[in-house]
Write a protein that binds this DNA or RNA. Structure first.
Lengths: 235, 235
DNA sequence: AAAAACAACTTGTAAATACAAGTTAAAAAA
DNA sequence: TTTTTTAACTTGTATTTACAAGTTGTTTTT
């Protein structure tokens, strides 16, 4: 029944509490020993949970002091964006599906190397345009291998997170990835899509996301309007 | 004498081996139990070392199989903690010091919040221009607090990694950080500095690096010519 | 009153141990 | 020969225990 490891459960609990605001920014989490007592687990297990929170940038730890809550900015998928004008979190996030998921063959000159299984399975293609405060900021093109995904082309993606659907309906979880970033001059189409001002460049991101399923990687090309927002990251 | 924790030593050994080419890409590292035997430490310690390698993107692990070597990319890896010199390979990387380290007061409207100690200590300022294959790609402006750094203004930084000097001479190690990325239109000065083609935008990065010393953070503003190279990162 | 020492916290590192779960190849059965 | 089972690996999770080291507030000493 309980397939989820204990450290993961504690991680989810603390994560939820931090995001929901149980702790304010700068607050100390309960000490490791307290967490041990409350959740009935040993310190290494508790520490494992805290380490994953550190990796997510949700807390920092300080020897002799404790675990300090860090409230990151709201993120889109794995990337985080932060407003440059106001340091506050992103308010409205809307998603338009420009191309509903369709089954295709992999494009020629695909920038990433594919495994044999991925190559044979063909790919699912979709395009999205994402808004912050009713302004388009994100245009992304996604390729996923056509395995483990029954009926995905019939699903509604409107205003839903792709990652959320993959996790909830297909038990696919992102575990990491690699990405390349560049600054590029937008095409005319892009300029219209993202409502770009004349001369405004865009951030170009190419990413490969690794999942818990072998031979199932998500490939995304992202164009980001960094006029009013920035890509934010912890490491 | 032994101030360095064991897991860290093993990490350094394996990291060096991977980078120097003892293992080819895709090779398996010795199993955790083998590493235990060879280096005379227990599995939790070995696993701690391997976890840090995973975090650096140098290996991936697979249950039942082993630790797979992942060779960092040839691109410039400033998204990872590793300094730029080590990621690109010192051969193709040259550094010009445009502004030798000088003691200044912190600028007005500094984009990051400073601790009291940092504020009081004043800052050390330097500018560098970094070349790959004799082409300028990187212009960076650095602010460090003026603590823990005796005689730094007398040091030669020519063709040396800032991080290496901080580590070797001052025992300061980068432990993480946060950054913001944008695509921006370059100023005339920048266009000349980075030999930019007309219309070529630049990648703008603002970063705060946390170190092992409390109240000692490195603040950098980076302009990156992404025409021929890209910023690369694992997560 | 100010400084030093101490005690009671906190997280960091490390050992020894156990079992679960995924992978692989050899051995056994069909 | 082909398929199935098994055994021997691998990493993943978890407990228990111990001491080191940084932080903070209290107590003692000066």
């Amino acid at each position: 029944m309980d397939n989820i490891p204990q450290y993961r459960k504690l991680y989810e609990i603390l994560r939820k509490h931090i995001i929901k605001g149980v702790y304010a920014e700068g607050d100390l989490l309960p000490s490791e020993n307290e967490l041990c007592a409350v959740h009935e687990m040993t310190r290494p297990t508790v520490r494992h949970a805290l380490e994953t929170l550190v990796k997510d940038g949700l807390i920092t730890k300080k020897q002799g002091k404790g675990s300090i809550v860090r409230k990151p900015s709201q993120n889109i998928g794995i990337l985080s964006i932060a407003g440059t004008a106001s340091a506050v979190g992103v308010r409205y996030l809307k998603t338009d599906i420009l191309q509903k998921p369709v089954i295709k063959t992999w494009p020629e000159n695909f920038p990433f190397e594919l495994s044999e299984l991925e190559q044979e399975s063909g790919c699912i293609y979709m395009e999205r345009l994402r808004y912050v405060d009713d302004e388009p900021v994100f245009y992304d093109i996604n390729h996923l291998p056509n395995i483990f995904l029954p009926r995905i082309t019939q699903r509604s993606f409107e205003n839903k997170s792709l990652f959320e659907i993959l996790r909830k309906h297909y038990q696919i979880e992102i575990q990491g990835g690699e990405q390349q970033l560049k600054a590029v001059k937008p095409t005319v189409q892009l300029r219209q899509l993202l409502h770009l001002k004349p001369g405004q460049p865009v951030l170009y991101i190419e990413r490969k996301l690794h999942t818990n399923k072998p031979d199932f990687n998500i490939y995304s090309t992202i164009y980001f309007n960094s006029d009013k927002h920035a890509i934010f990251g912890n490491f």
